[in-house]
Design a protein around this nucleic acid. Structure first.
Lengths: 228, 228
DNA sequence: CTATGAAATATCCTATAGGATAAACAAGAC
DNA sequence: GTCTTGTTTATCCTATAGGATATTTCATAG
């Protein structure tokens, strides 16, 4: 057998993930796109038919989604999509973000590779380049995507998988909330992102954590308008 | 129908939790007691027979356990109990504990009810009262239980469910590790717990966070001996 | 017209059977 | 002696059927 040369194309697996994983991803996307809206009941059999699979992988996916907090289960009454966060839960989530993402910014400043820092700076620049004047819906979608990428990039750069998972877990809830209260305000966000990126680039942990905490505090204020 | 008087006995539900939840708890316990040891393959059908249930609830439980990180799944190759933490993963876990439990101690200091603070002080006293001279196995079990209770009490006292869940998630991994490297050293731990409890009791967030971080740093050093 | 109670329905939850795939093992070639 | 190849086995994964429960609907009394 010919030796594998470096850079050769990776072997394409016919199905690297199991069916349950695919269903999990699909349902997550359905919730994220609010095709399944908060409070909706989830009919397992109907959902299985729509996805053209059996009920078993749907059950597995829902079990995982429950531990993510995206769906709730009541005994003998079925699953429902988790309701929107209350004001109190929303505050709790941001308290967690302050702790976790503050640490992520700090660690990324001292541990990240040079190339990673450059990517973070580039991502922040992309966010800042977004124009607020574009038509609302599409602009909001683009902003949301870039924002999520930026924060995940920093979470990954911190070099702690547990931290990254914890942050991702919180962001899914934030995402759902955002769909219902789309207030973009991309300009100030872009500036804040650039400040964070600069501190990470410079390898200044204290400044990076402070910039991240300031950003999140400001973002919380912006979002709080949704609660009246 | 007679009106319910306040304080009347709550209606006993025949089965408040679903079968899948029971199985989840059971398997978690099996892993915690190392009846299912790290690296062991998990045969779904055999496990279902042993537990006298069908395979479906076992599948649901395993799906949840996978997102907890206690088991791994390989496509078409089944589940295995997650291997013991590597040294690097162990360090990552303690970095997370420092961040999360540090915040928990801080918040508990400023938010917890009076009665809760008293319980924390009492729990710390119980830990300190443990004698190291008892026979190893039983003493270790008692210590582990008290330690877990103490940390969970503080996590709960912080008043943020997300934080409490995150901490509990980390502790399950710590627990598995401990079973394989039982070095109790209850005395110094008891003192450290009492210092944390005193700061929370006094409502001093900075002191509480510092005491918690010192405790975790010392605990990490004690555990690191296991890695040679 | 509203509230209560019972029957009907829809749905969940569990159990079992069958097809498909990866891992394990043995035999043979170089 | 080592590597490859074919066969066997065990296990997973999916699909379907039946019992149990919550929800809904409808009739009836106040």
């Amino acid at each position: 057998m010919a030796p594998l040369t470096p850079g050769s194309a990776p072997i394409p697996r016919l199905r690297r993930s199991t069916l349950g994983d695919d269903v999990y991803e699909t349902i997550t996307a359905l919730i994220m796109q609010h095709t399944l809206a908060p409070g909706d009941r989830i009919n397992i059999d109907a959902l299985a038919r729509q996805l053209e699979v059996s009920a078993t992988p749907v059950r597995e996916a829902l079990a995982r989604l429950e531990s993510d907090g995206l769906v709730r289960k009541r005994a003998l009454a079925g699953y429902t999509v988790s309701p929107l966060l209350t004001r109190e839960e929303f505050m709790d989530m941001f308290d967690m973000r302050l702790v976790l993402e503050g640490a992520a910014a700090r660690w990324a400043s001292s541990r990240a590779e040079e190339a990673t820092r450059d990517r973070i700076v580039g991502e922040a620049a992309s966010t800042a380049a977004l124009r607020d004047d574009a038509d609302g819906w599409q602009a909001h979608a683009a902003f949301t995507k870039l924002d999520a990428q930026f924060h995940d990039l920093i979470a990954a750069a911190a070099g702690n998988p547990l931290l990254r998972d914890g942050i991702a877990r919180l962001h899914s809830h934030l995402h759902i909330h955002r769909l219902y209260f789309p207030f973009a305000q991309t300009e100030t966000t872009g500036e804040e992102h650039q400040r964070i990126a600069a501190a990470i680039r410079a390898g200044n942990p204290e400044a990076a954590e402070t910039a991240m905490r300031d950003h999140l505090t400001a973002a919380r204020e912006r979002h709080l308008a949704a609660f009246g």
